[in-house]
Design a protein around this nucleic acid. Structure first.
Lengths: 202, 202
DNA sequence: TCAACAATGCTGTCAATGACAACAATGATG
DNA sequence: CATCATTGTTGTCATTGACAGCATTGTTGA
């Protein structure tokens, strides 16, 4: 394979600047947080001029939007990889919850971006679709269980919302440092149990 | 009362710049979001020079930290005003939940700031204390109920965590636009019921 | 083959910003 | 009232996002 880069005289065209920028952005995000993200800095890291990113992202916001979409893709993959319809309900939910929690711990800043509500209208549509896909996988689990009578009757959307909110809340606590990541992962089984069986004694 | 401001020749000293800046910051936050916050713009609005804010807030971050503390105060007041220990458990929780939800809808950006995890170490201590106070009020409700046998046994901190996480999740959905504010407020009763009684049929 | 043309990079420039330094006015204290 | 801390002020800097205008490369069709 050719030397990774000919140091002197790189080709005029980078070849894959868009991906490089996204990758760099995610690394920066992970290492220094959203606020530290600078288009010019990314350009420097990629070895291109300060205006080059503008060809691929009209805006800083456009880059952030693209990054958020990457996040939704990855989350979607993680969730569908983790879901096993063969498992009994409580176990199935626990596994899903653990996957979501793990993702949100590993990708805290990315998740923040995904949930940010300042996307440009154009990107917002794709974003909404991505959210639907993600929430959908949970809704399917709930609906399945409901058909089998393993879950109380009621609008499955409401039940999904509650379940999702609980997960999101725990994830948000873990990401915010109010709850140690290991503690969150360790407690997940108990949380799912409580969610299914309720806080009131039976 | 004296003309609100003598337009020409304001006194050299503003008199209450710190509060003015905080108030202005919160207004900007509410109207244009966190990202649009500029120290210089705030200075302009307050009618002082661009460097004046530096006397009160070493940093932009310092201002944000102070703002977050304001938020915790306000949230604490809202919660303790709403809590009524005389109510039966489910009702009591519902009322508390509604108060939290209302606050988080009315103060979405502020809440985001409060949960941000980039506070300067100094402010972090006060922040942690504020969080404890807030969580504490919920923990008391749970502990009370537990003593009366109205809630399953188990570490009250875990139960509080789950309850808080659920609330936080719903609030986060509402703030993020995935759930219409009215829908969230309307559904709160059902959510609390589900939380107490569990998703499984009894 | 080669003449448009689109895509992608580059340099230059601008206004806005946060941070800091040096200095000025005011107010409080002994 | 002399001294000193507080709080403002002006001036300056490097960084940044955005844009305009130009340059290089790749593609496409006559």
């Amino acid at each position: 394979m050719p030397a990774s880069r000919p140091a002197e005289s790189r080709p005029y065209h980078h070849g894959d600047l868009r991906s490089t920028l996204l990758a760099g952005a995610e690394r920066t995000l992970r290492e220094k947080g959203t606020g530290a993200l600078s288009l010019r800095e990314l350009a420097r890291e990629a070895g291109v001029s300060h205006a080059a990113p503008g060809r691929h992202f009209k805006d800083k916001q456009a880059l952030l939007d693209a990054l958020a979409l990457v996040g939704y893709d990855r989350l979607g993959q993680a969730l569908s990889a983790a879901d096993d319809p063969a498992l009994p309900l409580e176990r199935r939910l626990t596994v899903l919850a653990r996957a979501y929690l793990a993702f949100s711990i590993d990708n805290a800043e990315l998740l923040e971006l995904m949930y940010a509500r300042k996307h440009e209208p154009d990107a917002s549509e794709q974003m909404a679709a991505a959210v639907d896909r993600t929430v959908g996988s949970l809704e399917r689990v709930i609906a399945d269980a409901q058909e089998r009578g393993e879950i109380v009757a009621g609008d499955p959307q409401h039940l999904t919302l509650l379940t999702g909110a609980t997960l999101q809340g725990i994830a948000s606590f873990a990401a915010g440092g109010m709850l140690a990541p290991e503690a969150a992962l360790d407690g997940i089984e108990e949380f799912v149990h409580l969610l299914l069986h309720g806080l009131k004694p039976r």
